[in-house]
Amino acid sequence: MQTIALFGATGQTGKLVLKMALDQGYQIKALVRDTKKVDYYSNNLTIVKGDVLNYENVETTIKDCDLVVSLFGHVKNSPEWLQTNGTNHIVKAMNRFGIRKIISLSGGGLPFPEKDQPKFADKLIRAIMKIAFSKALDDAIQHSKVLKESGLDWVIIRGPRLTNEKPKESYRVGWVGVNSGTKIARADLSDFILKQVDSDEFIHQMPFVSY
Score class of each variant (00 low, 15 high):
Asp122Trp: 01
Lys123Tyr: 03
Lys123Glu: 07
Lys123Phe: 01
Lys123Ala: 02
Leu124Lys: 01
Leu124Ala: 09
Leu124Ser: 01
Ile125Ser: 06
Ile125Phe: 08
Ile125Asn: 04
Ile125Met: 09
Arg126Ser: 15
Ile128Arg: 04
Ile128Val: 13
Ile128Trp: 05
Ile128Tyr: 10
Met129Gly: 13
Met129Pro: 12
Met129Gln: 15
Lys130His: 09
Lys130Ser: 09
Lys130Asn: 13
Ile131Gly: 02
Ile131Gln: 05
Ala132Phe: 13
Phe133Pro: 04
Phe133Cys: 09
Phe133Ala: 14
Ser134Asp: 09
Ser134Tyr: 05
Lys135Ser: 01
Lys135Asp: 04
Ala136His: 08
Ala136Ser: 15
Leu137His: 12
Asp138Gln: 11
Asp139Phe: 07
Ala140Glu: 13
Ala140Gln: 15
Ile141Asp: 14
Ser144Lys: 15
Lys145Asn: 08
Lys145Gln: 11
Lys145Thr: 02
Val146Asn: 14
Lys148Phe: 13
Lys148Cys: 12
Lys148Ser: 14
Lys148Ala: 15
Glu149Gly: 03
Ser150Ile: 00
Ser150Pro: 01
Ser150Cys: 00
Gly151Lys: 12
Asp153Gln: 05
Trp154Ser: 03
Trp154Leu: 05
Trp154Ala: 03
Val155Glu: 08
Val155Phe: 09
Val155Gly: 06
Val155Met: 12
Ile156His: 01
Ile156Trp: 01
Ile156Lys: 05
Ile157Thr: 11
Ile157Asn: 11
Arg158Phe: 04
Arg158Gln: 08
Arg158Tyr: 06
Gly159Cys: 05
Pro160Gly: 04
Pro160Val: 06
Arg161Val: 10
Leu162Asn: 10
Leu162Pro: 11
Leu162Trp: 12
Leu162Ser: 11
Thr163Pro: 12
Thr163Ile: 13
Thr163Glu: 14
Asn164Val: 01
Asn164Gln: 07
Asn164Arg: 01
Glu165Asn: 00
Lys166Leu: 09
Lys166Pro: 03
Lys166Ala: 12
Lys166Asp: 07
Lys166Asn: 10
Pro167Cys: 07
Pro167His: 06
Lys168Met: 07
Lys168Phe: 02
Lys168Pro: 00
Lys168Tyr: 03
Glu169Leu: 11
Ser170Met: 09
Ser170Ile: 13
Tyr171Gln: 02
Tyr171Lys: 05
Arg172Met: 02
Arg172Trp: 01
Val173Phe: 06
Gly174His: 06
Gly174Ser: 05
Gly174Met: 04
Gly174Tyr: 07
Trp175Glu: 05
Val176Thr: 08
Val176Gln: 10
Val176Met: 13
Val176Cys: 09
Val176Trp: 06
Gly177Phe: 02
Gly177Trp: 02
Gly177Arg: 02
Val178Phe: 04
Asn179His: 06
Ser180Leu: 07
Ser180Thr: 09
Gly181Glu: 13
